[in-house]
């Protein structure tokens, strides 16, 4: 199993280049990354830790982290659904931390459960 620290460093650099930053709360980030690694072990893909996997990679490809909803959520709320990836402004407290509602269509959530 990949080391969380290694995954953290790898993703941090790659995602920062795209303008997405890890939440400054490193403890929470590590918990989420552990969830991602666990999901990869359980399902074979890094399914979003805050969503229930259908255990079908093709069906769940929209919620393989980073999910397709991240862009819109970070744009609107400054954070992805999990508070894993955030904008710089969010980390600096310029955007209030609020509940990010589920953007994934309910048909996708329930379709294969």
């Amino acid at each position: 199993m990949m080391d969380v620290e290694k995954l953290y460093e790898m993703l941090k650099e790659a995602q920062q280049k795209k303008g997405y930053f890890f939440n400054k709360d490193k403890k929470k980030v590590f918990e989420l990354l552990e969830g991602l690694l666990l999901n990869r072990e359980r399902y074979g893909y890094m399914c979003c830790p805050c969503r229930l996997a259908a255990e079908d990679r093709e069906w769940d490809k929209d919620i393989i982290c980073p999910c397709v909803y991240r862009e819109a959520d970070v744009m609107e709320y400054g954070s992805c659904y999990c508070n894993l990836y955030v904008s710089q402004e969010w980390n600096e407290g310029k955007i209030p931390s609020q509940f990010v509602p589920e953007r994934r269509p309910v048909e996708k959530t329930l379709g294969k459960l």
Binding site: K28, E31, E34, L36, L38, P49, C50, C82
Partner: peptide, 28 residues
Amino acid sequence: ALSTCIHCRNTKEFLNECGVNYECVEVD
């Protein structure tokens, strides 16, 4: 809850802080 979900963990921690008893189902 989901065992890997951070919002679920935050909820659990908060309920624990409040000192209330609750039933928790980890659906995953």
